[in-house]
Design a protein around this nucleic acid. Sequence first.
DNA 1: AGTTTCGGTGTACAGACGTACACCCAAACT
DNA 2: AGTTTGGGTGTACGTCTGTACACCGAAACT
Lengths: 207, 207
Amino acid sequence: MTESRVERKEKTRRAILDAALALSADTTLVALSLRQVAKEVGIVPTAFYRHFPSIDDLGLALVEESLDTLRTLLRELRHSVGDDAGSIIDGSVTVLVEQVRLNHAHFGFIARERFAGPQPVREAIAHGIDLAERELATDLAHLPGTDQWSEVDLQTLSSLIVGAMVTTAERLLTAGPGSPAERKIADSTRAQLRMMVIGAQQWRSKR
Amino acid sequence: MTESRVERKEKTRRAILDAALALSADTTLVALSLRQVAKEVGIVPTAFYRHFPSIDDLGLALVEESLDTLRTLLRELRHSVGDDAGSIIDGSVTVLVEQVRLNHAHFGFIARERFAGPQPVREAIAHGIDLAERELATDLAHLPGTDQWSEVDLQTLSSLIVGAMVTTAERLLTAGPGSPAERKIADSTRAQLRMMVIGAQQWRSKR
DNA sequence: AGTTTCGGTGTACAGACGTACACCCAAACT
DNA sequence: AGTTTGGGTGTACGTCTGTACACCGAAACT
């Protein structure tokens, strides 16, 4: 009863976003019809236009959201710093598993739409991941032990790490949350990150 | 004139596959209609059924094809062995760039459908990549220097390498063939692989 | 109190979709 | 020579799609 108009509007907007996320979970945005979404939300098809000009724009909003939870993940990672490299890695993977579990829908969305979505959506995702890579590179530069690294090398390492994380996230998505496969992936990723870090450490001294 | 019936049939079958590959290039299989394909080929919609029961089955045929060129890539990689680890890496990346350039359509198809395609298609791709990973692991086991590696470690390393290759292939796809971006990706990948190999070598002695 | 704004409704239409069915005709069998 | 096979055609259907248009009613403004 006592609901302002903006509140109501925001509510159905959320409902539309959630419905689109749920409905596209087992296909893609490009295979999602405006009418399906409207039916799921419980509104008439034409009412959709009160919120988004098209499905593609809906998609862009979802990208924004999903990239936001990706950034949250990265922020979370930075806060989980331990003393030695080993505990940093362990913590990071734990956080990754946790976040993917928690935001299954968003990470799944990114994985699906990254290459198969409408082109503006693809571009937005690519740009977001690119940004994350750059941020990680500057973060790495502030870490002790990387003082002498060249910019190119820092970018190379950060691209390697982000790539591994994306791959791991995708693997985690196909494995059920809490499944034994999930644990195996986590362990494997920890080992891989350790390999990378060892390689990176040796790398500098080798040049 | 002088064309047997099987020849004709094979010809239109190929035309259908090619049309589907071309049409799905900027969307997805799930957004591809039987009628679009038929129109592109130049046959009437119902004639499609003479070759495939459904679009999904067409998709499975395309997966088979694409996985075949993936296997070709891996075979090619094995043949490009050099003396030291460095030249192996350089050669491998060169081959990867070359093959992705040559089979742009197939690798693009795999990248798109891996997570967004119809489920049977997704499963087939996952299985194919899984198989490639396993094959690489047994190949690594036959390499000198890995005698003492445990099976788990071999799988970990091969998963890391395959993951990096898939990621690189995806990056190459978004970069234009012959573009400066392509060269940058190749160089970066070479550096990453070197890091991994160094890490892996140190890894064994560390355990 | 009177008016405007705006999220949601209902009807309506043209186009694309998958697919069933009857048909054609040249190649391939007997 | 006569018959069967099978790739391709054309029509026809019911369903789903995006979207245009006129309308409603309550919240928000004046």
